[in-house]
Amino acid sequence: MVRVTFVDVHGVEQAVAGEGDLSLMELAKANGIDGIAADCGGACSCATCLVHVDPAWVDRTGAPDDIEYAMLDMVSDVAGDTSRLACQIRLTPTLDGLRVVVAQQ
């Protein structure tokens, strides 16, 4: 069980948890987190699952690869230094307690 706190687009904190081989985006969709649209279904192609990772967790979520970076760069009006696409973060046990803020789009 991996527990995650989302701060949704309305600023409301939502504590949720998931199990198994899930991405952060899939966990958000399963729990109806507002602001995570994920139009492309997790293909790293649309930047509609953008989150800002709490700085305390950045080391554990890691950095985007080139393909993800290219998508983040196209929405640099809202993306920041700790932004990631939720579809590209796998929920491993080391992320238990993760906190992310859903980007305003």
């Binding site: 649209a37 139009d39 649309c46 509609t48 196209m74």
Partner: peptide, 15 residues
């Protein structure tokens, strides 16, 4: 800064 926000691929579930 919002170069990726065009609607040329549509959007939503039918993107």
């Amino acid at each position: 800064p919002n170069i990726g926000r065009h609607l040329s691929f549509g959007g939503g579930v039918h993107r």
